[in-house]
Nucleic acid binder design. Structure first.
Lengths: 246, 246
DNA sequence: AATCAGAGTATGTCCTAACAAACGGACATG
DNA sequence: CATGTCCGTTTGTTAGGACATACTCTGATT
């Protein structure tokens, strides 16, 4: 007998049904109720058991496949992925990541200015000549240890930003509070060695390895809201992600 | 008048209708027919124009939203993203990436062995004690310039691999020919400085920056097929990707 | 005994049909 | 003039059905 997935679906909840199923199966996998490698019942039976239509059930499983927790094969069935799957890279700020992990990051604002955008910034954010942006550099520490040196440019026609705010909140959190709905970001990850400016701030040696990230984020109205250039200590930070076929 | 998206849909083609739409819209965006920032007609009208049902049209647009070419907003509509969106990180090998970009990579096989898997490899590939794997290290050059130093472990119960094959084909191409259908991979990207072994092979100095990537790939039967540890010259390689909300 | 064909099963694609919810602008009201 | 309400538009969610296709296993044929 297959695993009985005793999910409870609340049809009066504002949470979409398919998402309730996603959460239920995720929980079942993380608690070990659904073992890695085990096969799920077929879509139609599962849908019937939960009194859902097949498209709804399938949409839920689609999400789980995309997030890498399940693999499907036509004519065969759907399995829980046997490996420990890490959460795919998400559109979140480092601050969010760290607080989610239970750490307590602190932020030092090194510079802060409200200035006219220079040419590269105007291009990255699609701004007209003369447009102004917030420009600031921050140093993020976790447990007193420096982790990241971040330089950002944010368009100023969205929400007010000041130095005090940046000390207590992540940039993305501030922007979200300001009504920005992020939709996507393009980023590039590479490596450099620490220079004489970066090394002392990150409390490492010039010549040590740093992970670099350049990112530009777009909101739901298609505006390029923010662009940044971050460097992380190579000995304490790396990017984990799950790539899914198709 | 909105952009007339004169897509042609071939209902006798084996290519799914929704995918034909995806390709058509992608092409329209890349050729500039659909300008960045422009609004698409609504889903229902577009579907009607192509004689498709709304779910099919919507599935196509879902994919485009996921790949970062479009952004949607309820009550408003769907827009072409204004920024140049890079192709999201895909489940492909470096060799594929380079050949797609028109470069002509060459591969040197530095070591090749068919050996018993050690403990970390057994764990990464979920193998039993005593299981054997192919283990090899390769140096990849583009235009005569070294780019990547790659060390891989591949389970041996899938397809035969030999040194000559590795010289002429990418690993993923070999495995796909062997019947492997990759579904997902988890990877981690970081930074180190080149050591005395890596530097001469990559024709760089010890102490220069390298991008590191560790990856484990899973196929459609849930098997962990391959795991590898690659290093790239930091001055000539970086990972680009698009992150999409939700 | 080995190979091939077919049945059964599960996912993949596609359709019609509704209703819900969020957004933006127009209009009415204080 | 400012504010709140309503309404049309557009995407979001859900249902139920039908057929296609790929895979596995089993039984029949050579």
């Amino acid at each position: 007998m297959a695993n009985q997935l005793r999910l409870s679906i609340d049809r009066s909840s504002p949470v979409p049904l398919y998402h309730q199923v996603v959460q239920g199966i995720e929980a079942a996998i993380h608690t070990g109720l659904l073992e890695p490698g085990s096969r799920l019942e077929n879509e139609i039976d599962l849908a019937a058991q939960l009194n859902l239509s097949r498209p709804t059930m399938r949409k839920a499983m689609d999400e789980l496949v995309r997030s890498g927790l399940l693999v499907r094969k036509r004519g065969v069935g759907t399995q829980v992925v046997s490996s420990q799957v890490r959460r795919p890279l998400e559109l979140s700020s480092l601050y969010d990541d760290l607080t989610n992990n239970g750490s307590k990051p602190t932020t030092e604002v090194l510079t802060f200015a409200h200035i006219e955008a220079d040419a590269p910034t105007r291009e990255a954010l699609h701004l007209a000549t003369g447009a102004k942006v917030y420009h600031f550099t921050r140093l993020r520490k976790v447990g007193g240890k420096p982790l990241a040196l971040m330089e950002n440019w944010v368009r100023d026609d969205i929400t007010h930003i000041d130095e005090d705010l940046l000390k207590t909140q992540g940039l993305y959190s501030i922007l979200r509070s300001g009504g920005v709905n992020f939709r996507l970001a393009t980023q590039r990850i590479g490596a450099v060695v620490a220079n004489d400016y970066q090394a002392p701030l990150l409390e490492t040696e010039p010549g040590s390895a740093l992970v670099t990230m350049e990112r530009t984020a777009v909101d739901d109205t298609g505006r390029n809201v923010e662009t940044g250039h971050h460097v992380y200590r190579g000995d304490s930070y790396s990017f984990e992600m799950t790539l899914v076929q198709r």
